[in-house]
Design a protein around this nucleic acid. Structure first.
Length: 553
RNA sequence: UGGGCUGUCGCCAAGCGGUAAGGCACGAGGUUUUGAUCCUCGCAUACCUAGGUUCGAAUCCUAGCAGCCCAGCCA
């Protein structure tokens, strides 16, 4: 709904594709790919890329592949691959084909041999330190390695033996022979193969030689017939290398690399290294902690795929270095959930209310609408009895002037029920209000009282008809708008990012709540049953987002 | 200070030589048995700056200024 209904505005990539289609470039085909490295969980920044690639393809009757960029087995794992597939599917996308860079290892190797034969690559024995020194600086040209002039025959022999495992890790690398004086450092004879005896999650121990990203990515794109290879801005400087490799080789096609600005969201981080650190150091409960900006964290918090897709469409696609306010994401989920979430009543911090003019044994049951604007949502039964529970915050002894809830001697509407009047506040020895004695106006069920106006409406549950629940109130993980700018990003962590309320009472209809359904607990926020911890015996709800509150207390 | 890229409302963002879309935020009203939702209205004589070309410039030219990215055998 929200994802497909939101106005689609143009962006520079849509323009490029439209222009290409207009001149029948690539035979009018559009083929994209989403190329994650399986070294962590997908986050909201990936969602932007996923939505971009998949929708661009879909809009143009094209295809979008899922391709794992698994060229660095040291950091990658099957667990991450499975999580990535799950998250992409959950977001609502279907890939045309699922591939791995490792599927192309053999072809990549042949192409490398070809480069050597053409005199476009050489085996270098420089140490990493030496290579760094020889690379020059931003303002000075680099120095050529002595090995740069090695004969083709010798390069071929050495490269064959590198693959055969005759050398130690790091002893040799294969380098593209380009230009050590290039103003673009990526063109100063970049390494394209390194020796690394690491077990690969898919190819096992078949290889001790692994290709580098720059060399692998462009060829993988070409082999898959990708037309538009969309990536983030930091790869802009790599485009000449992308094109150089494909120009040197006879690949099936030469995709066009297009770069866009990665998502930057206030009060969060999306560095995989830092997200991993949050997990391993237990600052959060896991990759799917509801405070994590990961797709799985957002899902567990109660976000919907539609809201995330809507968000990705709203923030746009440009090359600008921009920061998105959290409010934009929050607005997307509120807007979606306002439409689809059934309403219910939950009391977070209960305060006992005894109705003095109500019989102990009497119970009344009402049908309350599940959605105020959508009758098709139906209704559920809510019981009323002598002892009720309301929110502690909804009663004040010394209220500010504009307080429109319950006060001593005042009246308030119980949502879906009677208007009650507070006759007396009972306190404990310390002076805390522990119970209220109230009386109902029997003439106010389903109609307004005569001769006076009752402004306030509060939520409530019947003590004996409600059930206990734990509510986890999540807030943003960081209190600093840009934790990355801190010396230690952990210093930006919000110490109050989680408030666990274990003595909440919710209406009995919530007993069969499942994580698939997000509820609006009226006047408090949107909540979703926790898929890990919630059971009928012990209900646990996660707060997705609060309701907008213009009272600003 | 080499190379690449970017500068339109508080935050995003359309615009592509014909006289500043839209969203979020914010402000003012209205409806409401959620201080929610919904509705109405308001919100850039102005497009980083300075010159220039033009009948006409955010859009073209020139010169500045500011910010981001790059020196992994990471992606």
């Amino acid at each position: 709904m929200s994802a497909t209904d939101s106005p689609v505005s143009s962006n520079f990539i849509r323009h490029i594709i439209a222009a290409d289609l207009a001149v029948n470039k690539n035979q009018g085909k559009v083929a994209t790919r989403f190329p994650p490295e399986p070294n962590g969980y997908l986050h909201i920044g990936h969602a932007k890329s996923i939505c971009l690639n998949f929708t661009l393809a879909a809009e143009n009757n094209g295809t979008c592949n899922l391709r794992f960029d698994d060229t660095n087995p040291e950091k990658e794992s099957i667990e991450y691959m499975e999580a990535i597939e799950r998250d992409v599917q959950w977001l609502g996308f279907k890939w045309a084909g699922k591939y791995h860079a490792s599927d192309y290892f053999e072809q990549l190797y042949s192409y490398a041999v070809q480069l050597i034969e053409q005199g476009d690559a050489y085996v270098d024995s420089s140490t990493p330190e030496q290579m760094r020194a020889d690379r020059g600086s931003l303002t000075e040209a680099g120095k050529e390695s002595p090995d740069r002039s090695r004969s083709i025959a010798e390069n071929l022999d050495l490269f064959t033996r590198m693959r055969a495992g005759e050398f130690a890790d790091g002893q040799y690398v294969l380098r593209a022979k380009i230009d050590m004086a290039s103003p673009n450092i990526n063109m100063r004879d970049p390494t394209i193969y390194r020796i690394r005896r690491v077990h690969h999650q898919r190819t096992g121990d078949a290889w001790c030689l692994y290709p580098m990203y720059d060399y692998t990515h462009c060829i993988s794109d070409a082999l898959e017939g990708i037309t538009h290879s969309i990536c983030t801005l930091e790869f802009e400087d790599h485009r000449p290398l992308y094109d150089w490799v494909l120009d040197k080789l006879q690949t099936p096609c030469h995709p066009q690399q297009i770069e866009f600005a990665r998502l930057q969201l206030e009060y969060t981080i999306v560095s995989k290294r830092k997200l991993l650190q949050l997990v391993t150091e237990k600052h959060v409960s896991g990759w799917d902690d509801p405070r994590m900006p990961t797709i799985s964290g957002l899902r567990r918090a109660g976000f919907t795929p539609e809201a995330i897709r809507d968000f990705c469409e709203r923030i746009g696609v440009t090359k600008n270095d921009s920061w998105i306010e959290m409010g934009v994401l929050e607005n997307c989920i509120r807007e979606d959930l306002n439409e689809r979430a059934p309403r219910a009543m939950a009391v977070l911090r209960p305060l006992k209310v005894v109705i003095s003019n109500w019989d102990e044994a009497k119970t009344e049951t009402y049908h309350i609408a599940n959605h105020p604007q959508k009758p098709e949502f139906g209704s559920r039964e809510v019981s009323f009895s002598k002892t009720l529970l309301i929110e502690q915050d909804d009663f004040m002894e010394n209220p500010p002037k504009d307080f429109k809830r319950l006060v001593a001697g005042g009246e308030v509407r119980l949502r879906g029920s009677y208007v009650i009047k507070c006759d007396e506040a009972i306190k404990d020895a310390a002076g805390n209000v522990i119970e209220l004695h109230c009386s109902i106006d029997p003439a106010t069920l389903g109609k307004n009282p005569e001769g006076r106006k009752v402004k306030g409406v509060i939520h409530w549950v019947s003590e004996q008809h409600s059930v206990p629940a734990e509510l986890r109130l999540y807030d943003r993980l960081f209190s600093h708008p840009n934790p990355d700018t801190l010396n230690n990003f952990l210093d930006g962590i919000n110490p109050n990012s989680l408030d666990v309320l274990s003595d909440c009472r919710v209406e009995a209809s919530l007993l069969n709540a499942t994580p698939d359904t997000c509820y609006q607990f009226e006047r408090t926020g949107y909540f979703c049953a926790d898929y890990v911890d919630s059971t009928p015996e012990k209900l646990v709800f996660n707060r997705t987002v609060t309701l907008r509150d213009s009272w600003g207390k």
